[in-house]
Simulated assay, not measured.
Amino acid sequence: MANERNDMGSDEKDSAGSADTTRSLTAGLAFSDRMEALLDGRVTVAGASLDIICRPPQALFRSVLRDQVYDICEFSLGSHIATVAAGGSNYVGLPIFLSRAFRHGNVYVRADRGITTPRDLIGRRIGVMDFHQTAAVWVRGILADHYGVERSSIEWITGGLSAPVLEDRAPLDLPPSLSVTRSPQTLNALLEAGAIDALISPTAPALFVRGDPRVARLWPDHRTAESAYFHETGIFPIMHLLVLKRQRLDEAPGLPRALYTAFETARQFACADIAQRDYPKIASPWLMADRAQTLADLGADPWTYGTSANRTALEAILRYAEADGLTKRRLSPEDLFADVQGDDGLPPMDGQNGR
């Protein structure tokens, strides 16, 4: 999918954009159905042409923090919170939430250590890829809020999952009550050797994939736990957002609104596409049944963008980030998007801006 452009000539282009493009922008995105209409040209960005490069999320996140090679980029919400708290970066946040996921199913434990409940994690060593990885921020918050497992009761070990990563994604300035150590070994190796008792990872560890009985999910029936969490809190956790280079915002103040409109329209195309299909779009024989169950659990529009519709989730992760020491004060959702709404004259980025 690399280097595909969305300026294809077509009578079916959506009114979210215009074929009369005037500005070329590079966009680093992880592939998903929510941006497929931007890749195939059904949706364009008013006043701009996107050169979309699809890459794995971890590569995109480090690019934003270190290389700044993309004009717009998919980015970790946890890392965005940390950079805003540290005084900002070369990018500004847009309330376009490209990835969301429940994370109960991403906690793996050494079952042979007698870990069968969340409270069994107290006093243990837990591996995470980065301390401000968004998945880890959510899991730490859920463990503390719902199970009484405080962050300070855990020894946190950071490292690459299957290849060594010798430095943090971004500098950390954490309170002394938190123990965080980066390991030169991989988390997979540490889990296999028993050097960590548990692992928080969106990607299943190698031992679990191989069916090793020593490793299990903390919540074996994680879908039931996640559904219960949603019904209790109303939160479908946000993982990634879109960020825009400040230089491009300075050059074109209307660009955030154009991007929001285009990405919202592409999202609506994706939702409509699943609903209208009479054959599976992906290799899942029960795709439509899964969709029906998802809508029954979460409601008609769980992937919505904008700050107002997502205030509960944003306020929760900001509270968790403060407790993690990633922020020195409680940020508000408006702090995350302060450069693109309010006093800059743009309309609030909250409405339904699709077709």
Rank of each mutant, 00 (worst) to 15 (best):
L166P: 00
E36T: 05
V45F: 05
A46I: 02
H104T: 08
A206S: 11
G194L: 07
A206F: 03
A270E: 08
I142G: 01
D71C: 06
L249I: 10
T224I: 09
W138H: 12
W156P: 01
S332F: 02
V43F: 03
R248M: 12
N90Y: 04
R311A: 13
Q133E: 13
P237E: 10
W219K: 04
S177G: 10
A48N: 08
E167A: 14
F269Y: 15
S308V: 11
I274N: 04
F97Q: 04
F97M: 11
A272M: 13
M8D: 03
R355P: 15
I81D: 00
F236L: 06
S49H: 14
L29D: 05
S162Q: 13
N3V: 09
A85Y: 05
S227P: 00
R140M: 13
D11P: 06
R214C: 00
P280T: 13
W219L: 10
A144V: 05
A270D: 13
R62M: 10
L249A: 09
D297F: 02
R55L: 15
D14H: 13
L60Q: 00
G17C: 08
A193D: 08
P253A: 10
A136Q: 02
G9A: 13
I52V: 15
K13A: 14
L314A: 04
T22D: 06
T181Y: 01
P118Y: 10
S227E: 10
P348C: 03
K328T: 13
F263Y: 14
R5K: 14
L287V: 08
E36C: 05
E315D: 13
A266T: 06
K281N: 14
F31T: 06
